[in-house]
Structures are given as structure tokens and as C-alpha cells.
Design a binder for these strands. Structure first.
Lengths: 143, 143
DNA sequence: GTATATGCAAAGCATTTGCATTAAA
DNA sequence: TTTAATGCAAATGCTTTGCATATAC
């Protein structure tokens, strides 16, 4: 995993972000690879370290982390949003359309948009979706 | 567009789906390419043709169409789910992270996962996300 | 000292559901 | 005739917000 790179918390300090106990524990809970936690998960983890933290603060903090690009939202299936702290690395996901199970898959097997044996995690694939994100002409102009 | 292919409504008849006036108008509203309507949009369009249709029925119908694979859900940004009736063709989307504007982009420009000039619609791209969908081992077993 | 984050509780919105009624096949 | 879809309205679940209080810098 990302040893040798700055942790999320370190990156937040570099950004001169005001570090409160609440923000620190949220960043700590989000640490690691292959992390796809719901807000409720983060709340539970954060509470273990700081019992007085509120769910609203967790939501606020997650929203800010997403806005500053340190954390990514993953919206799969019908469930709640998952938060993925790997802002720099792979963003290829493997989602079960039935139970919502979610895996990272690292190297994009571009051969026919298939997946390598090792990355398929036993899934029977149904389709692939590619989403390009950015700012449209109007929004880029407005910034 | 899909001239020469069966319309959504025709495909539903082939599936021997019980065709009610409500289901028919929902299918009619969803007809076409580059269609990404919210449930509320579909409701508005359906009401124009059948004023007594209810929002609950629109949601139920959309959910069934998704479950049978005739319509795809597109969950971009924070807004409501969009429904895309092009179950067979391109599933590459271009989403504005600021205003939620959504375009189809047809051929996947795999060169460095960039987009061709013609497909970029003036966006300044930030990233690309690839999602593989299917059934995990457990769910595939259970079916 | 001051600007900003927090907690609480209430509001918001999209979506789902229970159940009696209605209608397709 | 029978099985399944509809409409209504209430409930649900996730997420956001207003505002007074507390706190990092």
C-alpha cells in the first residue's frame, strides 16, 4: 500500500487545513488501501476513537475531503455513498449488482475491456461502464 | 439512432410483459438516444400523455425496467438517478462535476484514457472511472 | 482574539412500501 | 376469473442545514 507516500492526515496538514480532533479521527479511519466505507462506517470507526463526534460532522468532513479532491465518492447500486481515500491511484471498481460487494481492480485489462483472471474475484461480468469527469465549458469558464 | 432496431415498447411486448397504459407511456417517454431522464422527468413526460399516472408507478416501472436490463441507471454527482434506455449501446459518459451536465461519448478513446477532440464537448477532464458490473461468486451461486 | 468547526435536532429530498382498488390477459 | 398493477399517502433512509456553543490557530 501507500507506504512512503504521505498519509491522508499528512496531506491535510500540508494543505494547512484546520486539524480538529474530529477531522483527525475521520482521516485516520479513512487510512489505507481498498477502503470503501459508508458515512455510517466512518462514523462508527470515528466514534471508537472519539465518542463525542457527531454524524453531522462526519458528513461535513467527508464532503469537504471530496471537494478538495482527497477522497472520492463511489456511488454503486442503490446503497449509500462509499468513500474511497485513494485519490491518486486506481479507480477501477468491480461491483456486484446483486449484493453491492465492491472491489478495487488494479490494472485495467484493456483487452476487449475484459478483466484478467486474477482480477475477476470470481465475478461473472455483465458490463463495463466508463465515466469521464471534469468541468463542462460553462463551469470551467465560471471558475 | 436505433431505427431498424426494436423500440423499447416492442421489446417489452416480446418479453410478454403486461402492458398497461402507464407502462406504455413510460416506455414512450424513455424512447430515443442520449436520453438521461430523472424519475421526475419521466413522471412529467408521462403525465403529459396520461394525466392520472402516479409517481409511485413511475418509480416501480423504472425499477422493473432496470431489473430486466432494458434501462440503465446512471448515478452521477449528488443529484437524483438518471435513467438511460440505451441498454445495448455505448455506456461511456461525460459528467460535469460542478453542474451535473451529462453527455454520451461513443468510442472510447483508449489512448491514455483520453477523449478525442470531437467527444470532449469542451470539457476539461479531471479523471476517468471504470466500473465493471456483474455478479459476485456468492450471488452468482445463489441464482 | 477571531474566524471557523462542532453538536444537536429538525428539515429536506429521493425513493420505497402497505394496502385497498382496478384492470390486463 | 385470476393474477398482477395502480394510486394514494405514509414511511424510510441518507444527507444537509440553522444556529448557538466551543475551539484551533
Amino acid at each position: 500500500m501507500g507506504n512512503g507516500e504521505a498519509s491522508l492526515l499528512e496531506r491535510l496538514r500540508e494543505r494547512q487545513w484546520r486539524i480538529t480532533p474530529q477531522r483527525r479521527v475521520v482521516a485516520e479511519v479513512l487510512h489505507g488501501d481498498h477502503v470503501h466505507l459508508t458515512a455510517e462506517d466512518v462514523f462508527a470507526g470515528a466514534r471508537g476513537r472519539l465518542p463525542e463526534i457527531s454524524l453531522a460532522t462526519v458528513y461535513n468532513t467527508l464532503g469537504e475531503l471530496v471537494a478538495m479532491g482527497e477522497v472520492r465518492e463511489v456511488r454503486a447500486a442503490g446503497g449509500p455513498v462509499r468513500y474511497d481515500p485513494n485519490a491518486g491511484s486506481s479507480h477501477q471498481h468491480l461491483v456486484c449488482t446483486s449484493c453491492g460487494a465492491l472491489f478495487d481492480v488494479d490494472p485495467l485489462g484493456v483487452a476487449g475491456l475484459g478483466l484478467s483472471e486474477g482480477d475477476s474475484h470470481g465475478f461473472s461480468l455483465v458490463d463495463v461502464e466508463v465515466t469521464f469527469r471534469g468541468l463542462c465549458r460553462d463551469c470551467a469558464g465560471r471558475s
